[in-house]
Write a protein that binds this DNA or RNA. Structure first.
Length: 541
RNA sequence: GAGUUGGUAGCUCAGUCGGUAGAGCAACGCCCUUUUAAGGCGUGGGUCCCGGGUUCGAAUCCCGGCCAACUCACCA
């Protein structure tokens, strides 16, 4: 144990012995937020026409009367006389404006203290921000002033007093009484640099949130974004639902699931990799507009863009289609950017500007590929394609084992996707890649879907959902054969009950998913998904 | 899973060629009644990530391990 913790333990015991309730008592009555109190005080100043002006520099040469400036003798004594608190200031040659008294009670964490003998300044941080406290021996009395100085940085206190403005112009609460609400046993990180060690910021997010205002702001923004998504969808008549996260068959995506075991039923269970198949059951049930915002779990690696659990929003609209969803996501993202971030132009973590102004580019997958690889790409043989891919640096592509489609898709993912910085709807993807979507009416080799790319990342896929029960079964079976023996095998299991639901008839529908964490990264310019997750996954220590 | 970089006081960081471990902040003591990274004087504080090895001697060099960040792979 560090000596500082030991010291604080001793202090805590001493306080207890003196009868102090070191962890606070009853609820704090009449509690205000620092931001509100500051605003009230500033309004009070305004109401009487008070405008703060900086005091004259340190010598008290400011004339109390006209001659005083000419008499430099004994400025110190004059200062003392002037500064005696609680007395009308004698220098009021110019009329003094009385600001109405604003009393307040605040509560928060003590972040810094500057003690000057018989007075002390401290910064209190509450959920709204920082505010300065001023404690004075004359006001508090010897004993309470000593107790105030005895507080530790990090302690949580409530304070009651009167607002004023210091010589330096800072709105400050003069403490008349205070109560220790929670003793901190551990010292805070350094006041200037804060906590910068990224590992510690993630592992001890609570400390990060105490000292780093950026972190606090980030998660408030996150909350605001999620709230406005809900408001937006609510405004369009969508119903929010919650479907199982613990599923007997993990479906709706191709990914490795987390496997667990349910004791009561003595059967294997999976953490969901997507809510899709359950939300579609609700379309069958007659809810035409539903959405869910909740966690998905994928048993895959972590990276700057991946966390094993992440927040997904999926939305379905009966009697809509892929184009319905394009309009929806365009409208949703621009609305959020404007209302929460205040701008349609955002900067990514490299400082590149992204303009979200509608309409967004729409381009077919095959056209992007041709744009990159030449107009004759789809006429080339597999060997020719593999050769061209290798020429681009994709050495691992092998014509002997890779299909045409795999080669093309590898090129899309490795050389095209990350170049789509400005919002782009990539449409008409190869049907094999998307078993849950409707085939394009004019070309059964592609599906009627989009993938929305912004900042080189897939932000949202949207589909014209497949509601053909027989076709869906066939494509599931093809998918199951495709992934058989691979690590995706468990996500290739066929959900018979879902197919049964389709057999009752599902209305044609548009569906879309948004990776919420990535959307937040995009809007806030965060470079790592860990910066937008309160408690990102780390290896246990 | 692979590569690169890093891990030194509560925090932020120095540490030269291998020669008994350093600063600022924080803490403790004293002075200081409008400071704001307050100031002044003084004091204490270390499993140098862990385990081996080389060496008279290792924070430093070598090997192994742990943890993290970044890049790559799986993936959204």
């Amino acid at each position: 144990m560090s000596d500082q913790i030991a010291q604080r333990m001793q202090k805590l015991e001493a306080l207890r012995a003196a009868g102090v309730n070191v962890y606070g008592g009853l609820k704090v009555e009449g509690l205000s937020l620092s931001s509100d109190v500051r605003a009230r005080y500033e309004a009070a100043e305004k109401s009487v026409g008070y405008v703060w002006t900086p005091p004259p520099p340190k010598s008290w040469a400011k004339p109390k009367d006209a001659d005083a400036a000419a008499a430099p003798a004994q400025p110190e004594q004059e200062q003392k006389g002037v500064e005696k608190p609680g007395q009308p200031k004698p220098e009021s040659a110019e009329p003094k404006i009385e600001v109405p008294e604003i009393r307040a009670t605040l509560a928060g964490r003590l972040m810094i203290m500057r003690v000057m003998g018989k007075a002390a300044f401290a910064d209190l941080k509450d959920s709204a921000g920082r505010i300065q406290l001023y404690a004075q021996k004359n006001t508090l009395g010897d004993e309470r002033f000593a107790a105030f100085k005895n507080l530790d940085l990090g302690d949580i206190v409530s304070v009651t007093g009167v607002m004023f403005r210091t010589n330096a112009g800072e709105v400050t609460l003069k403490v008349e009484s205070f109560t220790l609400q929670s003793k901190a046993l551990r010292p805070l990180p350094e006041k200037w640099h804060g906590l910068t060690d990224v590992e510690q910021r993630y592992r001890q997010r609570y400390v990060d949130l105490i000292v780093n205002d950026d972190a606090r702001r980030m998660f408030r923004t996150r909350a605001a974004i999620v709230r406005s998504i809900r408001e937006f969808l609510d405004g369009r008549g969508f119903m929010e639902v919650e479907t199982p996260m613990l599923q007997p068959i993990p479906g709706g995506a191709a990914a490795r699931p987390f496997k667990t075991h349910y004791n009561a039923l003595d059967c294997p269970m999976y953490m969901r990799i997507a809510p899709e198949l359950y939300l579609k059951r609700l379309l069958v049930g007659g809810y035409d507009k539903v959405f869910e915002i909740n966690r998905n779990f994928r048993n895959e690696g972590m990276s700057r863009r991946h966390n094993p659990e992440f927040t997904m929003m999926e939305v379905y609209q009966a009697f809509g289609d892929c184009s319905t969803m394009m309009e929806l996501v365009e409208s949703l993202v621009t609305t959020i950017a404007e209302t929460v971030m205040g701008s349609l132009v955002i900067k990514n973590s490299d400082g590149v500007e992204i303009n979200l102004t509608r309409p967004w580019r729409r381009v077919a997958y095959a056209d992007l590929v041709k744009e990159r690889m030449g107009a004759d790409w789809y006429e080339l043989s597999r060997e020719q394609r593999a050769a061209k891919a290798q020429a681009l640096g994709l050495k691992h592509i092998d014509a002997a084992t890779w299909s045409d489609l795999e080669i093309t898709h590898e090129i899309y993912e490795k050389t095209i996707e990350h170049t789509l910085i400005q919002p782009t709807f990539v449409t008409r993807l190869p049907a094999v890649l998307v078993p849950l979507a409707k085939l394009a009416p004019d070309d059964p080799s592609v599906v009627d879907v989009f993938e929305l790319e912004i900042n080189g990342q897939e932000i949202a896929p949207g589909y014209s959902e497949n509601n053909d029960a027989v076709d869906q079964r066939a494509r599931f079976e093809a998918q199951a054969r495709r992934v058989e023996g691979t690590h995706e095998e468990e996500s290739g299991k066929i959900d018979e009950d879902f197919l049964t639901a389709l057999e009752f008839g599902m209305p044609p529908a548009g569906g879309m998913g948004i990776g919420i964490d990535r959307l937040i990264m995009l809007l806030t310019g965060a470079a790592s998904i860990r910066d937008v997750l309160l408690f990102p996954q780390l290896r246990p220590q």
